[in-house]
Design a protein around this nucleic acid. Structure first.
Length: 199
DNA sequence: GCCAACGTTGGC
DNA sequence: GCCAACGTTGGC
């Protein structure tokens, strides 16, 4: 099932040259085992296909391939970085109340996104060669629905918390597969364990 | 449904 | 390799 129509970043994003010992945020990200993945929880037709996929759809399916990502930066994460066992915040986008709805776990590492070769798929990419796959996906498994939905508004409200510093959800809104720092991951889960009258 | 922000394309 | 024009994302 298609997840999201993908946004875009250049393939030529050059990897930063590694300098001696200074740990940049970027390098930290590479060691993180947490991610945020976006999907649209409501029906939207694209190319005659409904792209809807919510945390509840994942709950029913148990495991699903995360297809349809057509952005190089996100692709690189799917192909190279996500490892079996990594946890993902499941984000609902393009809906009345966008936010983090649940948790998923990587159960299969990057492999070619076959929807790129299917002319009937909304994610068909005629430029993707079967012998040289351009787009990748992982398989994710349902973990849980968060005890309390954490809206984007709520995350934005806490944007100055140290734990959320540099969170890409706040700075790179369009990136649909993104790394999440451990501190941010834990902060979000913590929030969702607690009632909050404001949200 | 609008549109700002952001990503890509392609002419030069 | 710059950058204007264009297309898409996704919150609102």
């Amino acid at each position: 099932m298609p997840k999201r129509k993908q946004d875009t970043t250049s393939d030529t994003n050059k990897k930063k040259v590694k300098t001696t010992c200074n740990k940049s945020d970027e390098e930290d990200d590479e060691n993180e085992r947490y991610w945020l993945i976006k999907a649209e929880p409501h029906t939207r037709m694209e190319n005659g296909v409904d792209v809807k996929f919510s945390i509840h759809d994942l709950e029913k399916k148990k495991v699903e391939h995360w297809d349809g990502v057509r952005n190089y930066e996100a692709r690189n994460i799917l192909r190279d970085k996500m490892k079996v066992g990594d946890l993902c915040l499941f984000y609902h986008s393009n809906c009345k109340e966008p936010g983090i709805a649940g948790l998923a776990k990587v159960v299969k590492e990057g492999y070619p996104d076959f929807t790129a070769w299917d002319p009937r798929s909304p994610y068909f990419d005629p430029k993707s060669d079967k012998d040289k796959p351009k787009w990748f996906m992982v398989d994710v498994e349902f973990v849980k629905v968060l005890p309390r939905f954490i809206s984007l508004k709520e995350v934005q409200f806490y944007k100055d918390e140290d734990a959320l510093k540099g969170m890409k959800l706040l700075t790179r809104g369009r990136l649909s597969v993104q790394p999440v720092k451990k501190s941010a991951f834990e902060f979000i889960l913590n929030l969702s364990e607690k009632d909050n009258e404001t949200f």
